[in-house]
Write a protein that binds this DNA or RNA. Structure first.
Lengths: 255, 255
DNA sequence: AGTATACAGGTTGCATGCAGCAGCGACGCT
DNA sequence: AGCGTCGCTGCTGCATGCAACCTGTATACT
């Protein structure tokens, strides 16, 4: 895990990025893949050596990661990898559901119906993935992409930059993201059917938005998020599955 | 506006603070009081000169302010003061209401009833302020303090650090805070009675929490936040009142 | 006259030096 | 032997130097 010269999969399109962004991506990746264990202090110098970037941008990246919630400051100075109780994760999911619910309601109340086109297209793509290719690894991958896009489209339709920012932040805890547990589901046959339920909710929420049924859209979206909570509960009993959850290593086994 | 040697009211207890925190407080104050007009680029060097702090901590403070949402990055580099449409402000208030509503529901569902003591004490203090001293300037000030404490106690009772963080962030836009418009109300007689309504909602939400009526607590808290929206609407017609809203200078007159 | 170009000033992004502090280990004292 | 104290090492927080970049202006050319 401690290759000295090379660093994780941030290979593509790193060249033009400013150093700070590069450092942010690298450190986030290191944390999520578990290379930096929770609770451990992150030495600026060691990261600087491993990445060839000087301490200044690394420091900046760590500050941003603290805002994201992945690291925390140590009273005596510096930063440490944060860890999360299971309750924390459930709460994060509930928060996302609440905010996405608000987005869905606003989309229903004030969204421009012109946006329904892309939404429906996205729905249809998800349908195809769920119906046909869901058994394959690549199918899950496609599902994750399309699922993320659908959620983004709904948030867009709310037309509230403030809300968008807030949701972005809520989702920056990766296991709270809409796609957080999908890849884990590939390993848990008993949760395959959850995808059908999820897709049904997708259809219902879009229908509710189209009908300007704000309260309904909100309620569905909240319940939709709770599916992730159920998957988390399942994954907590599957060691292998939890490994596939981004940032799963940060979840404390004992609460 | 450009006093060279001195800076705003950050006089008390600055000595022991690290430079970064000091810079953060100073810059935030400069923005909120309107010394740095919205849209204007914040020159690191000029702030450094005005504060006597070097560029490094100033830069760090600006990054944090960007996360808070008070400044934004300029594509060509550096930071600028952000401005907000009226819709942005309403949305920010709605988001706070949603999150505080979630907090109230969680407090009702899983909060420890031992926490009701301080809550009721706080309620009583608010009662006294509202009944007697509300006509005076100092009365409003006391109201702001106690109101902030009540809101904080409710959030505490939800016992969710994640949610607490998220609410902290939502409230970092100062005009979205529970106390954002209270000081403005002092200047708007027609909104005095709003305080009675607000206090009634305080009582009701605590009662709902005590009875473990989660849905009721959530709904009341959401509606409670919308009072701030009504005050905003009033304040937008009172030039003087808007001046008393922290960060009021950042709200664009035209949407 | 209008436009394009080149130059200059200022500003950021980054690297690095330095001082101060916290943590840790070893040594001496009781 | 146990405990307290001293010294050291490594680290962070901050200051500053430097190069690249963007912007704005003035000039020259069409």
């Amino acid at each position: 895990m401690s290759q000295v010269a090379e660093f994780p999969s941030t290979s593509e399109a790193d060249k033009g990025q400013p150093r700070t962004v590069k450092a942010l991506l690298i450190i986030r990746e290191l944390i999520l893949e578990g290379a930096l264990p929770p609770g451990k202090r992150i030495s600026e110098l060691s990261v600087a050596e491993r990445t060839g970037i000087s301490r200044t941008p690394i420091r900046a990246a760590l500050q941003r990661l603290e805002e994201e919630g992945l690291v925390e400051t140590i009273p005596s100075g510096g930063f440490a990898v944060k860890s999360f109780s299971q309750q924390d994760v459930f709460d994060a999911i509930e928060i996302r559901g609440t905010l996405e619910g608000l987005a869905a309601r606003l989309a229903a109340e004030r969204g421009s119906m012109a946006r329904l086109g892309p939404l429906n297209a996205c729905l249809q793509e998800l349908d195809e993935v769920v119906e046909s290719a869901i058994a394959t690894e690549e199918g899950f991958s496609r599902y994750v992409t399309a699922n993320a896009r659908l959620h983004a489209l709904i948030v867009d339709m709310a037309e509230s930059p403030t809300l968008e920012r807030q949701i972005e932040r809520a989702v920056s805890l990766p296991f709270a993201s809409p796609s957080g547990f999908v890849m884990a589901q590939a390993l848990m046959p008993e949760s395959h059917r959850v995808l059908f339920v999820a897709q049904d909710q997708h259809r219902c929420v879009v229908e509710a938005i189209a009908n300007r049924e704000g309260a309904r859209a909100e309620a569905i979206m909240q319940e939709h998020a709770r599916l992730a909570g159920r998957n988390l509960r399942l994954a907590l009993h599957h060691e292998k599955a939890l490994e596939r959850v981004p940032g799963g290593a940060l979840i404390r086994k004992v609460r």
